[in-house]
């Protein structure tokens, strides 16, 4: 249990620094930017209590906001992502493939599960993030294209890191 807490705190710090120091400077074509820090919320264990899920999402969004000077935007969309996480997990996981002690990863639940799990949640997060930032509905489709491209970018990084650090072939 303490091991899990320490791993998650460690992951929190690594992802915040990675996001703030490196990924925020990518700006591919000026507006496509990956937001890899949501990976922290995606990787929290299944048995995490609801209040902890919400508070830790609030915390990571708040950290990113402080560094970016965009107070509230990342916080709001991270909390939204945390709210949708149990709903998405319940709707895409069937009872029989789910065993206690599993982690939300490709190695435990397969590529298809992980792909749909992360694409839905990342899309929800990015949708909220970009529309709260713009704060208007003119240029609706320009913003939507930013959402879609950034979602693809973030998803790509997350799946890549799944293969790099979690080694799905082990099973």
């Amino acid at each position: 249990m303490t091991g899990k807490v320490i791993i998650n705190i460690f992951r929190f710090c690594i992802l915040v620094f990675l996001q703030v120091l490196i990924l925020d400077n990518i700006n591919f074509r000026g507006f496509v930017n990956p937001y890899l820090y949501v990976y922290f919320i995606l990787l929290l264990p299944f048995e995490v209590p609801g209040w902890l899920l919400l508070f830790s999402s609030f915390a990571i969004g708040f950290c990113i906001d402080i560094f970016n000077g965009t107070l509230g935007i990342h916080t709001a969309s991270s909390v939204l992502l945390a709210f949708f996480r149990p709903i998405v997990i319940n709707s895409i996981t069937s009872r029989k493939e789910f065993e206690p002690g599993m982690k939300p990863s490709i190695s435990d639940l397969g590529f298809q599960w992980f792909f749909s799990y992360s694409i839905i949640l990342i899309f929800v997060h990015h949708l909220a993030l970009f529309y709260i930032e713009v704060f208007r509905f003119s240029d609706f489709f320009v913003t939507l294209s930013r959402v879609i491209f950034s979602t693809i970018f973030t998803l790509l990084l997350i799946i890549l890191s799944q293969y790099l650090f979690f080694n799905p072939s082990k099973k």
Partner: peptide
């Protein structure tokens, strides 16, 4: 409580957003 906590945190976050929108960054 999950839903209400979510609502509470979103309200806090949005109050940050609004504050940031109307008075320029003094953070």
């Amino acid at each position: 409580y999950f839903f209400f906590l979510f609502l509470l945190l979103e309200i806090v976050a949005f109050s940050f957003v609004l504050q940031n929108n109307y008075q320029q960054a003094t953070f």
